[in-house]
């Protein structure tokens, strides 16, 4: 049972790492909570001399939790100015002016 809990915890740790790298925001809190829960179960089920791995796992999960929270608090959402898109917008307006004048000519 202890081994099963450790494996499940490791799977959720891997998911947490993936979610933290990807821009998933606070969704990463779901796998991190599950990883903590299963590493705690593994710790609880382990005999005293075999608790070291689950202890380290819980510590690692806690670090990941801090990273997720820090990313959410300190990394602000911003839109990067896209030069190509800005140029397309300008061109679109210039073309629109010509097209509107053509339409006025139809009246």
């Amino acid at each position: 049972m202890r081994i099963a809990f450790i494996i499940i915890a490791i799977v959720f740790v891997a998911l947490t790492i993936a979610f933290t790298i990807l821009p998933m925001g606070t969704i990463a809190l779901i796998p991190v909570a599950l990883a903590f829960l299963f590493s705690f179960f593994a710790f609880f089920k382990s005999k005293e001399r075999k608790r070291i791995f689950s202890k380290w796992l819980m510590f690692f999960v806690f670090v990941l939790f801090l990273v997720i929270v820090a990313k959410d608090v300190f990394v602000k959402d911003k839109v990067v100015t896209d030069q190509k898109f800005q140029l397309e917008k300008q061109n679109s307006q210039q073309e629109a002016q010509k097209e509107l004048e053509e339409l006025e000519g139809l009246k």
């Binding site: 990394v75 959402d77 911003k78 839109v79 990067v80 896209d82 898109f85 917008k89």
Partner: peptide
């Protein structure tokens, strides 16, 4: 105008 945030 719709623009995704840089992280996306």
């Amino acid at each position: 105008e719709v623009a995704t945030f840089n992280k996306w």
